[in-house]
């Protein structure tokens, strides 16, 4: 009888402990995005050269959308890689687009000059585009396919291999099953 009761105790406590132990494998601060596979929220961006750009106008092309800020070290770390990838893909119906958030215009321009960035970039001073995309870390990169659907999201610095692999997938319209993760900074 006592043994049966003891087993009941174990049956109640065991799963609870397992659940708490499971907690160790999670990072409570990461926010999974519900946007993967959904249409990319439209926006109009004023670029640093003064022209404006509408996301809808890029329909039919694959868009590599990168949120960044000049004060974020991982953004600096990935900047050269992004520019190199742009040079490789710019003739293949791929558009690279950078959106600078939580930054001053002056710092942002210095950043672009320092890394010799040639793909279009603009600022989102009110943070509305960032909220539209559910941004919570920096940098964050979204891959948008020809139909305007988000195929992949990467939080944190992205590497050459991921960029090329995910661009190829986006060109073929394949939606990734998971988010990517690199070194990131919490935005302010």
């Amino acid at each position: 009888m006592a043994w049966r009761r003891f087993l009941i105790v174990l049956a109640v406590v065991g799963p609870l402990l397992a659940l708490l132990a499971y907690g160790f494998t999670r990072n409570p601060r990461e926010i999974p995005s519900p946007l993967r596979g959904k249409p990319a929220p439209p926006f109009t961006l004023t670029l640093f050269d003064g022209s404006t750009l509408r996301l809808e106008d890029l329909r039919g092309k694959v868009v590599f959308l990168n949120f960044w800020a000049s004060w974020c070290p991982p953004c600096r770390a990935e900047a050269r890689t992004l520019e190199a990838a742009w040079q490789k893909y710019k003739d293949r119906e791929v558009v690279f687009l950078g959106i600078d958030i939580q930054d001053t215009e002056e710092d942002a321009r210095t950043f672009l000059r320092e890394f010799g960035i040639t793909y279009p970039n603009g600022r989102d001073p009110s943070g509305k585009i960032a909220i539209d995309y559910g941004v919570w870390g920096l940098p964050e990169t979204f891959f948008i396919d020809r139909e305007g659907r988000i195929t992949y999201k990467h939080v944190g610095g992205i590497g050459w291999q991921s960029i090329t692999a995910k661009l190829e997938e986006a060109l073929r319209g394949i939606v990734s099953s998971q988010e990517g993760k690199g070194d990131y900074r919490q935005i302010r």
């Binding site: 926010i31 995005s33 519900p34 929220p41 909220i131």
Partner: peptide
């Protein structure tokens, strides 16, 4: 907001 950040 739910559609942007999920249930979190």
């Amino acid at each position: 907001f739910l559609s942007k950040y999920g249930d979190w």
